[in-house]
Amino acid sequence: MSTASEERGAREIFVELYEEFLPKVFRYIRYRVNSEQETEDLTSVVFEKALVNFEKYSRDKASFSTWIFSIARNTVIDHYRTQARRPALSLEKAEIEASSNELLPDDVIVKMEEREKLQVCLSRLSPEEQEIIALKFGSEMNNRQIARTMGLSESNVGTKLYRAVRKLRDSFQETDNG
């Protein structure tokens, strides 16, 4: 039987990990799905799974980062599977959503519009490119961690990331000009 101090210890560890990884998991999922609501729902699912399986997690086998992001990746994949396909986000829809926030300050509105455009452009990349961007900029993983997570070589990750960011930039600029 675990003692009160051990339980408090486990609770404190979980809270610390939650506070450190929640923003990263949230950002990763936000890159992978189309709406804030979906992001919150899936983030909740990820941490609930982590809590239920926390006893099974072994620090010797993998870092907490690798473990939690493998749960996050699988959760996103399951989400797509249940939805059959990822609905493409149209630019028109993004503009309508952004224009419904007229009471917000200008800089906030500009940022929201840019985020929506970025979401549209991201959805035009291949799933692998989207995943690399999400792991790099959402999870803040280094290339070695991304390589291990995706089963690629580290140099391959670097090349794909460089290419994906330039592709995304071009798509974003085209949207701006269009």
């Binding site: 929640l22 919150e40 900029f137 959402g138 330039r166």
Partner: peptide, 27 residues
């Protein structure tokens, strides 16, 4: 552009963070 990607990252709202934390602690 990569810098812009970082700046445009969405952050979880404090309300969401707090309510999920409460839910997890209850579990």
């Amino acid at each position: 552009f990569a810098r812009k990607l970082t700046e445009l990252r969405a952050e979880p709202s404090p309300e969401f963070q707090e309510s999920l934390k409460s839910k997890l602690l209850r579990k």
